[in-house]
Amino acid sequence: MIRLLSYDFFALLSFRKLLVMILVFFLIGLATQKDVASMASIFNLEHNVADTLLFSFLGPDRSGFGMGLIKWFVIQVVLVYLVGKMLDQEIRNGFFYTIPRVGSLHLWLGSKLVSLFLFTLVYFLVGFGVVFLLSFYLNSFSIILSDFFHEMILQGQGKVKAGLFQLLFHNFILLWLTGFLSSLLQLLVTIISNRATVGTIFIIILHAVSGQAGSFSMEFTKWLPSNQGILMRHGLVDPFSDLTLSWSYTYLSVGVLVAVMVSFYYINQKELIDFSSNF
């Protein structure tokens, strides 16, 4: 399986795709830096290295409008596109070469799952790394949250009840696990529909609905997978939100488990292992 994993990982990650990832996160970091610098000058508050990093990845607030939504959506769509490219190549005919060599459908699927787990990790590590380096270059270094951050989040109504590292840790893990769950759903829909485009469009629609959902129902927001990765909508940052970290971690763990089980069940039942067939 490890040898197939290497094939799958090379299918997912090439030098060119790595450059695309770096460029996307660089632009997101740059846009965030511009916003942070201009808002900080309006409020006449000091900002630091953590502000650009956090505001690049916290995601949209409950209203679901503005730059927060656009940046979050771009990050999700690029991931969906990269995963979709790999799935498209594999189901077009690549599986004819890989499945007989590995000799087991379970190992083939298992390798896809593990490579998606690792790829989503690499994707967000690159993202946080690029934005951190950019922010580190442009801002003063600090390991505490700035007054600017508290002002932007709570609009003068106190301080965020979490430390910088706590926020960064949960932000990263939630984004990664949500990205992984989305990739699993994309894989599952692709296997069921025999088309990578169907899986890709399904996840993009899911993200679009999730991004806007907060504006019409917070209760509904809680149940959508994409929202679990938006720290801005969690009670840790938003005192008016009842979306808790424990809810999201439980949701993501159960979601991943169910998606994996359904994928294995479905592939066992498939009477024709031919994703390129119209039957």
């Binding site: 090379f10 594999e90 077009r92 690549g94 004819f96």
Partner: peptide
């Protein structure tokens, strides 16, 4: 079988 499917990059 079918068309050859390789990693294009």
């Amino acid at each position: 079988i079918e068309h050859p499917g390789f990693l294009p990059q």
